[in-house]
Amino acid sequence: MTQPLLKVEHLTMRFGGLVAVNDVSFDAKASQITAVIGPNGAGKTTVFNCIAGFYKPTVGRLTLTNNGTPHLLERMSGNDIAGKARVARTFQNIRLFPKMTVLENLIVAQHNKLMRASGFTLLGLFGWPGYSKAEAEAVDLARYWLERTNLTDVADEVAGSLPYGGQRRLEIARAMCTEPVLLCLDEPAAGLNPRESADLNTLLRFIRDEHKCGVLLIEHDMSVVMQISDHVIVLDYGRKIADGPPDAVRNDPKVIAAYLGEPEDSAVAQGGV
């Protein structure tokens, strides 16, 4: 077997005295949906923030192997992880550019590519034709994802005016416009109605199968997880308590205990952010 797309080894993240993530190791493979689940405050978002470079892990190694080139994520800045290692992410509390239009959101996502095409602005200022071509291609890519996420009709609306479900989909479209090899989604189905949730499953399968992109998915909704994930990792109090295919994980007594909760522990678990 070749290297997995993302290899997380002994990841530990401390905030002062609090150990949010404690010695977690797992792999995520290309063309697979890997779900990270766990009760509130288990440390799921913190794992994402370490992968995306928003936090520097206290201990641990994060290796992303993209076309045979390894990138050591823990040593890279957040924007290099997105730009060079090609890891894209969405946020638990949606982070769009609310006053810009939907289309502009998707064009900003292609910034680095367009920046080079515009000769770092100099050529672009003087209307260099190569830039117009690059921009047209960027719009084509944006249009492709707008169609996939059903946002074509609202492409010229400001992003902040979209309904909640639309904003969630736009955030995924924007992440995909960076042409990532690994897409990290932090609770993409939160707040969606059953129908939107089903559409999201279709979209995620499409991303996995057609774009050979690895998907790392945080999700609370067990039914979503069981339906679409190829591999499930369960965190509880910052530790990994289970790792395996969905069916095996579902019947794991430790997972059931963590989700149903021992009475005295559940109050602590609620304290998570």
Binding site: F54, S77, N79, V108, M115, T121
Partner: peptide
């Protein structure tokens, strides 16, 4: 002119949300 170039859009995006910009590979 510069508003319609990548830097200009990145400026506006940065004004809206710096963290999201970082996640898109913008320095």
């Amino acid at each position: 002119r510069i508003r319609k170039l990548p830097v200009g859009r990145a400026w506006e995006a940065l004004r809206e949300d710096e963290i999201a910009c970082t996640a898109l590979g913008i320095n």
